[in-house]
Design a protein around this nucleic acid. Structure first.
Ligand SMILES: [Mn+2]
Ligand SMILES: [Mn+2]
Ligand SMILES: [Mn+2]
Ligand SMILES: [Mn+2]
Lengths: 167, 167
DNA sequence: GGCAAAATGTAGCCTTGGCTTCATCATGGG
DNA sequence: CCCATGATGAAGCCAAGGCTACATTTTGCC
């Protein structure tokens, strides 16, 4: 620990009191309620970020099952651009969460919950892409941005997108 | 691969001559080029997700510095809804990345690069909120969704938003 | 001016989500 | 029919980003 050298060279510290706010000796910080609201927004974004990965897996597996008839770890990994080991670990988590099931060397399948989630995720993905396209975003960029945006679009916002697209 | 004949191919759309000779009993899997493109989109989203956290810290620190005159770990933590220890670890990372600097017990400051990034992040945040509002999303929902969406909006899409908002 | 409380920092634990490496399994071509 | 090869799975490493618990420093208040 190079914790030495902690001599506070008496700077013009108190020269920046920034004492805005009300008449009271209250702290300059903004009201608790506002900070709490902001914290809630960030917590919300963190939560969405946490489920984003599983959503993408479920969406992709559903697609593979529909288009190819089966969803193999290697294909999943290739489509996501990760190693097969990474895909297998995520698949284990999907199973733990009750979204998928599989037996060794037999490919992956979705549970009822998994299929329901996949449908929801796909609808959201498409709607986000459609909205971006409608705003003039080039197709490849729309697809790319949508891959991240989709996980942060609430039901309310989704409805707004639908309204705008006239649906 | 599988012997079944899976004809429903998404890539038979129109252009996109990336198709490999599909005349033979070629694998049902979609072309390498398409899978690679999809993998690239996911890689892009992963990368954006990775920098999202630091962006939020930088944006918040800049705001605290502007509004309060100082950015203290405890305030940062409260506004983000995380423990102060978590904030301090993130701040260490900001410093490592050359975005911030600080001395023990003295609050956090942004480097030139940090300020530049903050300006960019804030502009993006505002534009996303404005777009959502323009589409009829309620203010609190717009703020909440924007907190996540903002990190996945490319420059191209940003321009499209500006165009739509008439700027 | 001194001291208790608040703020800050450190240490260590956990999960997620990447990776590489190595072991095992399944299958199709010869 | 057999085994080379590719697919699958297991193990273990790493960084990020949460947390709690505890140590240290600063500050506000009497
Ligand atoms: Mn996605
Ligand atoms: Mn998607
Ligand atoms: Mn954000
Ligand atoms: Mn933001």
């Amino acid at each position: 620990m190079e914790g030495d050298a902690m001599m506070p060279d008496a700077e013009a510290e108190d020269a920046a009191p920034a004492g805005d706010a009300a008449s009271e000796g209250a702290p300059a910080g903004l009201p608790d309620a506002v900070a709490a609201q902001e914290a809630a927004r960030h917590a919300n974004a963190r939560s969405a970020r946490a489920s984003a990965l599983l959503h993408d897996y479920v969406e992709l597996i559903d697609d593979l099952l529909n288009v190819e008839g089966e969803a193999r770890p290697t294909d999943i990994a290739r489509r996501l651009g990760v190693s097969h080991a990474t895909a297998i670990k995520a698949i284990a988590r999907l199973k733990r969460e009750g979204l998928a099931h599989s037996r060794p060397y037999r490919g992956v399948f979705l549970t009822e919950a998994g299929r329901a989630l996949a449908a929801e995720v796909r609808a959201r993905h498409r709607l986000v892409v459609d909205l971006l396209r409608a705003l003039g975003v080039p197709e490849d960029v729309a697809e790319s941005d949508a891959e991240g945006i989709e996980h942060h679009v609430s039901g309310e916002t989704l409805k707004a997108f639908e309204r705008f697209l006239g649906r």
